[in-house]
């Protein structure tokens, strides 16, 4: 166990920039935008709309409504962390078993008493747990700073930040939901993570192309065959991947109420999963038949990654 953690720490050292700096930059972006918004409202002409008016409007809302607005707003702010985190994990895994082959440092890593299984486990654990935790920490810090700035702005505009704002917020619920959704997504995304590690373990160069081209070519070919045939295949690879992605339990949109399917990244959510942000809906995915198939696929990919990793020093 200590060895596994030592290897995870190694991953952190190597990727400090993307694991720690990236979420802090997103947090900085939120803080700066908020400050600019407040300054803009008070110092410059913004159609006469000032923070005092905003505070007044806030005061007219029911406490329940204020709580809901805050909850959805905070949940919504997590989307940016989620999206950027996905990119960070994607590129991390793509290089995880590739970079040390390229610079030959694999010969050093293999001189240490850590099995290939443990090495791959450490990379997977990093992607599934360490990176989400780093982003979570940055998001919490961002929320706290925003709460302080918001309270000061409300206070300066004559409102009471405690009754208008702080007491109605439910940060632990937001953080809990986001954490749950990220961890659930770590499991949901295992087929993708396995695929990336597999590509990373064998690609002779440009792992990005090796990761993206085969599914792309397959989808196009399948679509083409479908087009030529009189009957249509129900699911082609492309639409399966798309469905899988949009069925992710990660919160990709903050939904108001329970209108059912919302909009994620500009694409309508489809499939038979309920996209309302609830723990039940996350678990619903993890205990689905799709998940079981996904885990089997992931296992095949990871087995392949291990096979290649063992032979990475052959020639």
């Amino acid at each position: 166990m200590n060895r596994l953690l030592a290897l995870v720490r190694r991953e952190f050292w190597e990727n400090k920039g993307s694991f720690r700096t990236t979420p802090l930059v997103i947090g900085g972006f939120f803080i700066v935008s908020m400050l600019m918004g407040i300054i803009n409202m008070n110092q410059f002409d913004s159609d006469g709309y000032t923070t005092s008016m905003a505070v007044e409007e806030l005061g007219k809302m029911s406490a329940e409504m204020r709580g809901e607005v805050l909850y959805q707003g905070m949940l919504g702010s997590s989307v940016m962390f989620t999206v950027v985190m996905s990119f960070v994990i994607f590129f991390y895994l793509l290089g995880a078993l590739y970079d040390d082959r390229k610079d030959r440092s694999i010969l050093f890593w293999k001189s240490l008493p850590a099995s290939d299984t443990m090495t791959i486990a450490s990379k997977l654990l990093t992607a599934m747990v360490l990176v989400p935790l780093m982003f979570l920490a940055a998001m919490i810090v961002t929320h706290l700073l925003m709460a302080i700035i918001g309270s000061i702005a409300i206070g300066m505009s004559g409102g009471n930040p405690w009754t208008l704002f702080i007491s109605e917020s439910n940060p632990f619920k937001v953080w809990g939901m986001v954490t749950a959704s990220w961890l659930a997504n770590s499991i949901w995304a295992l087929p993708l993570y396995g695929w990336l590690l597999l590509v990373s373990s064998f690609a002779p160069r440009v792992p990005l192309l090796f990761a993206t081209l085969p599914p792309l070519i397959f989808s196009v070919l399948q679509g083409w065959i479908e087009f030529l045939q009189t009957f249509t295949l129900k699911n082609n690879i492309g639409s399966m991947i798309k469905d899988w992605f949009f069925n992710s339990p990660a919160i990709l949109t903050a939904e108001m109420g329970d209108e059912g399917a919302g909009i994620a990244l500009g694409v309508p959510l489809s499939g038979h999963f309920d996209h309302a942000v609830t723990l039940g809906n996350m678990l619903d995915r993890l205990f689905s038949l799709q998940m079981l198939v996904g885990l089997a696929v992931a296992a095949v990919f990871l087995f392949g990654a291990h096979w290649f990793r063992r032979r990475a020093t052959e020639s």
Partner: peptide, 18 residues
């Protein structure tokens, strides 16, 4: 390999440290 490496060290050449 992993358990063997507890008792074996090797230096491949100077270029392999990360």
């Amino acid at each position: 390999r992993a358990s063997l490496m507890e008792d074996v060290c090797f230096i491949a050449d100077v270029a392999v440290l990360p």
